[in-house]
């Protein structure tokens, strides 16, 4: 690939591409991600639709919150079990709402650690009104115009402070 063909204007995701320079030597240039520059909206659309579909199932009681996050974060049952250090058969139980009723606080804490979410969010879904509809705060990532949600872990591992404020 020639140097001039390799440049993509995408400051949000920079990368190194090896190209043929004008003198015929191959070497690195700093450029941007073609996919991020052109298709990031499509990624967020799919993510939003997936979250919305999973949330519907969660609200209807057909899946547990463990399944909700496992699918959102593209983890398999085996991988989640290994990461949370919980037996695979037990994780399998926790994917179903009836089995989830048996989860312990310690196990919840481990799941929250793997999913990198506040423990409280394994028992609630935080939605924000955005353009006349409620959307997941996690998917919006605080990109709404007027509201901001900040969740802080406290020194008590089982208590999370959720702060909702108007954006200034």
């Amino acid at each position: 690939m020639k140097e001039k063909e390799g440049f993509v204007d995408c400051p949000d995701q920079q990368m190194i591409l090896y190209v043929e320079k004008d003198d015929g030597k191959y070497g690195p240039i700093q450029t941007g991600s073609y996919l991020t520059a052109n298709y990031l909206d499509d990624f967020f659309l799919k993510k939003k639709n997936l979250e919305s579909a999973l949330r519907d199932q969660l609200i209807r009681g057909s899946i547990s919150v463990v399944k909700y996050f496992m699918v959102l974060e593209d983890l398999t049952l085996s991988e989640l079990a290994a990461r949370a250090a919980i037996r695979k058969s037990r994780v399998k139980k926790h994917l179903d709402p009836s089995g989830f009723a048996e989860v312990t606080a310690a196990e919840l804490s481990r799941y929250a650690g793997v999913f990198n979410v506040p423990l409280a969010n394994l028992l609630q879904v935080v939605l924000i009104k955005n353009k006349e509809q409620f959307e997941s705060a996690m998917i919006l990532e605080n990109r709404t115009d007027h509201l901001e949600v900040i969740q802080d872990q406290t020194e008590n591992p089982y208590v999370v402070l959720t702060k909702i404020s108007e954006r200034t």
Partner: peptide
């Protein structure tokens, strides 16, 4: 949409996930 995501990941694995372009073929040419 899932299939679309996985197909588009081919681009990520070949280009964006730290390969130097074309699934490491350009860096190996260098």
């Amino acid at each position: 949409e899932h299939l679309s995501h996985e197909i588009m990941k081919i681009n990520i694995l070949l280009e964006d996930q730290g390969t130097g372009g074309a699934g490491f073929r350009y860096i190996y040419a260098t």
